[in-house]
Amino acid sequence: MAKNRFTTDTGPTQRQLRVGELIRRTLSDLLMRGEIHDDEVNRLNITVSEARITSDMRVATIYVLPLGGKGKDQAVKALARNAHEIRRTLGKVAKLKHTPELRFMADETFDRMDETRALLDRDEVKRDLQTPVPDSPEEGAE
């Protein structure tokens, strides 16, 4: 049987993870040192939380969050406006043979964590979590 190469059952390869982490670290350093020639980008303290690379290594989706979480859209737009310069500088510093196209997105992970905490703090959820679960019949049978 032929291998179906269009399945999405597998996760990223080691190479994708390695290149993604290299891009994330290098971009974080570039932003920290203020090497992007845009005052708006340099004014914002931006955290680069993750870089995901497509399987063909042509596109990198960069998840960013400004310090404090305020002005996400502004930060993403500023980075997208400077994507060409960031890509060129990233290629030089990281010494990648082919630098992927950069797409920036706001990182929503922290918002989801806050929503989960709020959900777990609700009275009906606390009540359900504190209710003891009866033993299953399989465990008691000997």
Results as ranks from 00 to 15, higher is better:
residue 110 F to V: 10
residue 134 P to Y: 14
residue 90 L to P: 02
residue 12 P to W: 07
residue 85 E to A: 15
residue 18 R to G: 02
residue 28 S to L: 03
residue 75 A to Q: 06
residue 83 A to D: 04
residue 134 P to T: 13
residue 33 R to Q: 14
residue 118 A to F: 00
residue 41 V to R: 07
residue 44 L to S: 14
residue 24 R to E: 00
residue 12 P to Q: 12
residue 101 E to I: 14
residue 48 V to Q: 01
residue 49 S to K: 00
residue 120 L to D: 04
residue 90 L to C: 10
residue 64 V to C: 11
residue 122 R to C: 04
residue 103 R to I: 09
residue 26 T to K: 04
residue 81 R to M: 10
residue 115 E to W: 03
residue 85 E to L: 08
residue 3 K to G: 02
residue 77 K to Q: 14
residue 97 K to G: 06
residue 132 P to A: 13
residue 62 I to R: 00
residue 109 T to W: 02
residue 122 R to I: 05
residue 32 M to W: 14
residue 54 T to C: 05
residue 20 G to W: 00
residue 95 K to I: 05
residue 39 D to S: 09
residue 51 A to F: 00
residue 99 T to I: 13
residue 128 D to L: 15
residue 78 A to V: 04
residue 131 T to G: 03
residue 9 D to I: 01
residue 80 A to F: 09
residue 51 A to E: 00
residue 97 K to C: 02
residue 34 G to A: 13
residue 45 N to G: 07
residue 91 G to H: 12
residue 35 E to Y: 05
residue 89 T to V: 09
residue 92 K to L: 10
residue 22 L to S: 15
residue 29 D to P: 01
residue 139 E to P: 00
residue 18 R to Y: 08
residue 74 Q to N: 10
residue 59 V to T: 11
residue 67 L to K: 15
residue 72 K to C: 11
residue 6 F to M: 04
residue 23 I to T: 01
residue 63 Y to I: 00
residue 88 R to L: 13
residue 28 S to A: 07
residue 65 L to T: 06
residue 52 R to N: 10
residue 126 K to D: 05
residue 59 V to D: 10
residue 119 L to I: 03
residue 99 T to D: 09
residue 15 R to G: 03
residue 22 L to Q: 15
residue 46 I to Y: 05
residue 4 N to Y: 12
residue 108 E to M: 03
residue 58 R to C: 11
residue 139 E to A: 13
residue 88 R to S: 12
residue 78 A to C: 06
residue 58 R to N: 11
residue 112 R to M: 10
residue 68 G to E: 07
residue 109 T to G: 03
residue 42 N to V: 06
residue 99 T to P: 07
residue 42 N to H: 07
residue 13 T to L: 04
residue 108 E to D: 08
residue 23 I to A: 01
residue 140 G to P: 02
residue 136 S to D: 11
residue 129 L to T: 02
residue 87 R to K: 15
residue 128 D to I: 09
residue 91 G to E: 13
residue 139 E to Q: 13
residue 37 H to W: 02
residue 137 P to T: 01
residue 3 K to N: 05
residue 28 S to Q: 06
residue 38 D to G: 09
residue 115 E to G: 06
residue 103 R to P: 02
residue 1 M to N: 05
residue 99 T to N: 06
residue 34 G to V: 07
residue 23 I to D: 01
residue 121 D to Q: 15
residue 91 G to C: 14
residue 11 G to T: 06
